[in-house]
């Protein structure tokens, strides 16, 4: 076992451990914080694989964006420091069963699937390559999906602004 493997297992333990704590804790803010650590662990995993760009994007989007959003919504809705009520036994049982079924399904698929080595040439995950692929119009270029996604996001932005505007005019009336 070399250093790299040790780091992998530590990261895996961080992801799984904080993920587990995130579901079992009864304080919602702690759950959000454990989720955050889990996501940071995933980012660490990307760093471990030398996919720095993906790791940084993981941190920007999930840690800096989504978790902060979750925490904000907790701040705005939940009573401070109050524990969630204990779940009833049957509920816990069914939840565990559902989780187990999902897990078993995935495990079954993985066990059935035979993994073959990829034949496509590997491009180094540098920012330059990612950028060229993302906006490439040649074969395999991602320009069209990229633009479609950006139009979708633009529509969402415009929608947000429209909603915000309407409320303001109602108030003035």
């Amino acid at each position: 076992m070399n250093g790299s493997t040790i780091i992998f297992y530590m990261l895996a333990a961080l992801i799984l451990g904080s993920g587990f704590l995130s579901v079992t804790t009864r304080q919602i803010f702690r759950a959000a914080i454990f989720l955050l650590f889990s996501l940071i662990g995933v980012a660490g995993m990307y760093f471990w694989m030398d996919y720095e760009f993906i790791a940084a994007v993981q941190i920007v989007v999930y840690v800096g964006g989504i978790t902060v959003l979750i925490i904000f919504s907790i701040f705005l809705t939940q009573q401070a420091g109050e524990k969630l009520p204990e779940q009833s036994m049957s509920r816990m049982l069914f939840a565990a069963l559902a989780a187990f079924c999902g897990f078993a399904l995935i495990l079954l698929q993985i066990a059935k699937h035979t993994f073959t080595n990829s034949t496509t040439t590997i491009t180094a995950p540098t920012v330059e390559n990612i950028g060229n692929e993302m906006l490439g119009v040649n074969k395999g270029g991602m320009a069209l999906p990229f633009e479609v996604v950006s139009v979708l996001l633009l529509a969402a932005l415009v929608g947000c602004i429209v909603i915000a505007l309407r409320q303001k005019t109602q108030q003035t009336n």
Binding site: E52, I59, V63, G64, V127
Partner: peptide, 19 residues
């Protein structure tokens, strides 16, 4: 490789400690 992006990514975590 991504020095500047790394800085802006990590610095967004600092808000978590404040929250």
């Amino acid at each position: 490789n991504i020095g500047v992006l790394y800085v802006s990514a990590i610095s967004s975590v600092s808000v978590i400690s404040i929250l």
